[in-house]
């Protein structure tokens, strides 16, 4: 799969913790971007349904309907997560994939998101907003960077929360 964006960020927590926040708390740190909505009725709230391989990433829409963004292809807690990523407007032969890697660096985790396969979505397709290829990918990369920053903030909140519970 070509036509990809890769974004990486260090987060002050252990890989397993970051993996847990990424998956279990995605509804809290995920912020929608109007340019990249999954369905015309978005935004909803994202969630991983199931907690292992064969689970799926969904968007629970305000209407109560559930849209499947993609199946989980690799679920390796603290190390690697791979899932499919489709918008409702994609034709059957269009598919993109997100791989997230969690690597320990000292007492931090380097989280790398690789979103690939945009070559399967033609530039004239509605999902691409008629942006030239590199502009579209740049906007997408900036969104992922903002999302990882949210993930970092959420992880920091979560650690403070756990510390308080530990103190009690």
């Amino acid at each position: 799969m070509t036509s990809k964006v890769l974004v990486a960020l260090r987060i002050k927590a252990a890989p397993l913790r970051v993996f847990e926040v990424f998956t279990a708390d995605i509804g809290a740190w995920w912020k929608p971007n109007a340019l990249f909505s999954f369905t015309p009725r978005s935004p909803g709230v994202l969630a991983f349904e199931g907690v292992s391989e064969w689970s799926r990433l969904v968007e629970r829409l305000p209407s109560g309907k559930v849209f499947e963004i993609g199946p989980v292809r690799v679920w390796d807690p603290g190390r690697r997560l791979v899932f499919g990523w489709r918008q409702a407007s994609f034709a059957p032969d269009m598919d993109t994939e997100v791989e997230v890697r969690f690597e320990p660096v000292g007492d931090e985790t380097r989280v790398t998101v690789e979103h690939r396969g945009w070559d399967t979505v033609p530039i004239e397709h509605v999902a691409r907003h008629r942006f030239p290829d590199t502009v579209f990918l740049q906007r997408h990369a900036e969104w992922w960077r903002a999302l990882l920053t949210n993930l970092a903030s959420r992880t920091a909140m979560d650690i403070k929360g756990s510390a308080r519970e530990g103190d009690a």
Partner: peptide, 16 residues
């Protein structure tokens, strides 16, 4: 130095 962003085009060539 740590790679923080990489964008590749349809041909797999580095764009940014």
């Amino acid at each position: 130095f740590e790679l923080t962003m990489l964008i590749e085009d349809n041909d797999g060539k580095l764009a940014h």
